[in-house]
């Protein structure tokens, strides 16, 4: 008897379906080991970092769903913090009251003085199941330097460097408060905001579809 290719196709489909129906497909998911590998590779490729300019853009654009979490001690936070940031010192990071402040669906930006502590917090939060967490690259040290006294690019410079410098100059007063605004008068008139709009690559997951 000749079997048509159609029936062979149906047979294979049914067979594979039957295999799946009786196999523990769902138990294969969510292996912690693989997650750790993923985290490690993200740490290694530094894709957990977000640049100060991008965070500044988010603040200026009032990007919804972004939460800046300052993990320095409360005293440092009181002296200066990024506009809109909340303070959760690193040692209190995993307390229930702290976790309640951080919406799991929000985009979290962790800031400390440098990179190290924020990266440690990043790892902890990622393991806790927070999906969208970033570390402010360079931390507060870089942030303050970038926005209170942006360094003028020296020749030869690229357009990108000029744009970044102008953006830092323009965003400085907003990011640093009055201290920066008072001293900005002696500088050359602030150029019109040449904010180069870049769609962030680290945006939340985009819709995919037909």
């Amino acid at each position: 008897m000749k079997i048509s290719s159609r029936n062979i196709g149906f047979g294979i489909m049914l067979l594979l379906g039957l295999i799946l129906a009786f196999s523990p497909v769902d138990k294969m998911n969510i292996s912690k080991v693989a997650d750790r590998e993923l985290l490690l590779s993200q740490l290694h490729s530094q894709s957990n970092y977000i640049e100060a300019e991008d965070v500044a853009h988010w603040i200026i654009d009032k990007e919804p769903g972004v939460l800046i979490v300052d993990i320095r001690p409360a005293g440092d936070y009181m002296k200066y913090h990024i506009p809109g940031a909340i303070n959760i010192p690193l040692e209190k990071l995993l307390e229930k009251s702290s976790l309640e402040l951080m919406d799991p669906s929000a985009t979290l930006v962790l800031t400390s003085n440098g990179n190290t502590k924020a990266s440690q917090a990043w790892l902890l939060l990622k393991e806790k199941g927070y999906d969208d967490v970033y570390v402010l690259h360079g931390g507060m040290n870089h942030w303050v330097e970038a926005f209170s006294a942006p360094r003028k690019p020296v020749e030869p410079y690229t357009d990108d460097e000029v744009f970044r410098y102008q953006f830092r100059l323009a965003a400085g007063p907003v990011m640093m408060g009055t201290a920066r605004a008072a001293q900005s008068t002696r500088e050359a008139p602030v150029k019109p905001r040449t904010i180069k709009r870049k769609r962030r690559s680290v945006k939340k997951k985009v819709d995919e579809g037909c």
Binding site: F10, G17, P24, D26
Partner: peptide, 17 residues
């Protein structure tokens, strides 16, 4: 389990074909 769903979808597909 997703395996059972898969089998159901396969059967549905064959019926549709």
């Amino acid at each position: 389990s997703s395996g059972v769903v898969a089998l159901a979808v396969v059967i549905l597909a064959i019926l549709f074909f």
